[in-house]
Write a protein that binds this DNA or RNA. Structure first.
Lengths: 236, 236
DNA sequence: GCAAAAGTGTTGTGTCTACACCCATGT
DNA sequence: ACATGGGTGTAGACACAACACTTTTGC
């Protein structure tokens, strides 16, 4: 029975995603010494003795970006393969962080935004963690209001369409995006309009998200409770 | 900077769920000494020095149940509140385990199945972990083939309906359940029939799940890629 | 024949995609 | 007027819930 936890370190990592230049990008820093010298790694660091993992990852992120820019943060998963870091036995709990498209944080010299679709050589198992974060974002864009975390406070539908397209990796119709999000009560018109561009065109209506906290808008595609019933936590 | 990880223990826990007697139940054991003497706790234990968390939870579960009975195991989340265990600083990574309804493992004397809808006094934060496991199961029943993990190898639609109803906490129509699962290719008829009961009635067709590994059947309720396109990992 | 249980047919609703069409602005 | 970009109308495709109806058995 290997019941001694000897020298197991625990780190918190964050997959911080933002749409920049029409591409979904992730914040990575380049390692300057072994192990994995030169490889790009997720920001994060050791869990403190009296911290939660979420407090810890916010503290470590603060060294890279202004954490007030983070519009959303949620836990992804914990990786525990004994050889994931060859140097030391290390568990890593990954978080997904999102930054709205209008925020442009100052970054340290070793840190940069990389397109998720074209990742550089990544350290440890960080490549697969980035992809897991991307997949979580894609899924939640579909059944929740998580778009708020990618979008600035105010936006036109064209702008929102571009954000969704970059995050989802496929074209999105502004027409249908508007109808889906308005029907669900996720976005609403502010009543104001954006002035037309230099080449003319009808001015776009300006929208905002009704809530900037995560809400599940499409809880169960199927197997809903029957019409008259409620599923309350006590049932079953 | 509290950068020393001194005496942080890491445990793996499992929310093992099964439908028994028309109710969704969870496997708990009663603590025989402090802290939390008498309270009911999730099975699990310390992570070994050279184990993954999944290997660890399988090892600890083996002390409670025949782990070959586990039809599914997936990671839920990691809890890190510093005071979640008053005695020691302890991180806990929770797993969701499922046992098919036809399996009846031998249990130690301190261990029992408790209805999730009527949990006894639970140790630490285990109550909320159980509820998180239940919610994960409910969600996945809706958009994946996870029903396979609750069902025996062969079953009639009435039997499957009862399992879904117990897990979801509301009535489920056998009629519509059959159509949804057959349309999605999740279940298929075996061609055989169950003999009629003592009071008569038409014999029921016997079904099975086409796959007994997790597959997402309803990936995105909305915001699907346009018809001609594919979203491949490289795009976006 | 009658009760019981299983399974199919059918209708109606809601939500989505696709695409045609109309609207408001600059030149 | 016409190009440009924004927005609405509408038709068709599905998937689902609800419920009536048919089928197959025991008695």
């Amino acid at each position: 029975m290997p019941e001694f936890t000897t020298t197991t370190a625990h780190v918190a990592l964050a997959v911080v995603l933002q749409v920049r230049g029409a591409r979904l990008r992730v914040l990575l820093w380049q390692r300057a010494r072994p192990p994995e010298l030169g490889a790009w790694a997720l920001p994060g660091g050791l869990l403190g003795a009296d911290e939660t993992l979420e407090v810890s990852i916010r503290r470590h992120l603060a060294e890279k970006v202004d954490v007030r820019g983070l519009s959303h943060l949620e836990q992804l998963e914990t990786r525990s393969e004994p050889r994931r870091n060859r140097a030391v036995r290390e568990l890593a709990t990954a978080y997904l962080g999102l930054v709205p498209a209008d925020v442009d944080p100052v970054l340290p010299g070793d840190t940069a935004w990389h397109p998720v679709a074209r990742l550089p050589q990544a350290a440890f198992d960080h490549r697969s963690i980035v992809l897991a974060g991307r997949d979580r974002l894609r899924a939640k864009l579909s059944y929740s209001n998580l778009g708020f975390a990618l979008a600035p406070p105010q936006f036109t539908l064209s702008e929102l369409r571009a954000l969704y397209a970059a995050a989802l990796g496929h074209e999105v119709s502004a027409t249908n995006l508007q109808r889906v999000l308005v029907r669900r009560g996720v976005i609403e018109s502010t009543g104001t309009r954006r002035e037309a561009g230099p080449v003319g065109g009808r001015p776009a209506a300006v929208y905002r998200f009704r809530s900037r906290r995560l809400e599940i808008t499409d809880p169960f595609a199927v197997l809903r409770p029957p019409h008259g019933a409620r599923a309350g936590p006590g049932a079953g």
